[in-house]
Simulated scan of single mutants.
Amino acid sequence: MTGFQGVIDDARECARLFRLGRDVEAGLAMIALVEAAQPLVELMQSDVQSSWNGLLGLMFNDQQAQNWLSLADYLEYEWVELLTAGQAV
């Protein structure tokens, strides 16, 4: 993963894996995705960082509940929107 666009693309790919039921592969990809996105988020304003923390909590709850479709939606829509909004500021 390289840079902002790489994180966005990887989030969409990870969401696709969850939708396909490839939860083990997607879970490993999500760990790498969070690690890649964290430094980008740390450069953003505090309100974006706070929203990021809340979103991560929701995503991890869905992962524990094995709610793969909801988790995929968070990755593909909320995650991308949050990072895009944070980059624009």
Rank of each mutant, 00 (worst) to 15 (best):
G57D: 15
G6N: 06
Q63G: 11
S51Q: 11
G27S: 14
C14Q: 04
V7C: 04
L17G: 01
V24Q: 13
G27P: 00
I8D: 04
W79V: 02
V89S: 11
L69M: 10
G21E: 05
T2D: 14
L69F: 10
L28Y: 09
Q49F: 04
F4K: 01
L40F: 07
N61T: 14
S70V: 08
T84V: 10
N61Q: 14
A37I: 08
L33M: 06
A15R: 05
Q49C: 04
R19L: 14
R22C: 04
W79F: 15
F4H: 01
L56K: 08
G27A: 11
N67G: 03
D73R: 07
L58H: 13
G86E: 08
W79H: 03
Q45Y: 09
F4T: 00
L40Y: 07
Q5S: 10
L82R: 02
Q87G: 06
E13P: 00
M30C: 09
V89D: 13
L20F: 11
N61F: 10
E78S: 13
D9T: 12
F18N: 00
S70T: 12
Q49A: 03
G21V: 06
D9G: 09
E42K: 12
Q64D: 13
E35W: 09
I31N: 09
L55P: 04
C14N: 06
D9A: 13
V89I: 11
E35V: 11
A85T: 14
M1R: 08
A11Y: 03
V89R: 12
Q66R: 13
N67D: 15
L43V: 12
D62P: 00
M30V: 08
Q66I: 10
M30I: 06
A32G: 15
A15E: 08
L82H: 02
Q87E: 13
G27L: 05
L58R: 15
F18D: 00
F18V: 03
A32K: 15
Q38R: 15
A88S: 12
G27M: 04
E42A: 13
V24E: 15
R16F: 07
A11W: 02
W79I: 00
A88I: 09
V24A: 13
M1T: 12
E35H: 13
W68Q: 04
M59W: 06
E25C: 00
C14K: 03
L58Q: 15
R22E: 14
D10K: 09
N53S: 14
L56V: 12
V80Q: 01
F4I: 02
A11V: 02
S51G: 09
P39G: 06
A85P: 00
R16I: 07
Y74M: 05
D23E: 14
E25Q: 08
L71V: 07
V7Q: 03
E13W: 05
F4C: 01
L83E: 04
A36N: 13
R19A: 10
D62F: 05
L83A: 02
G6R: 04
G86W: 08
A36M: 05
L82T: 05
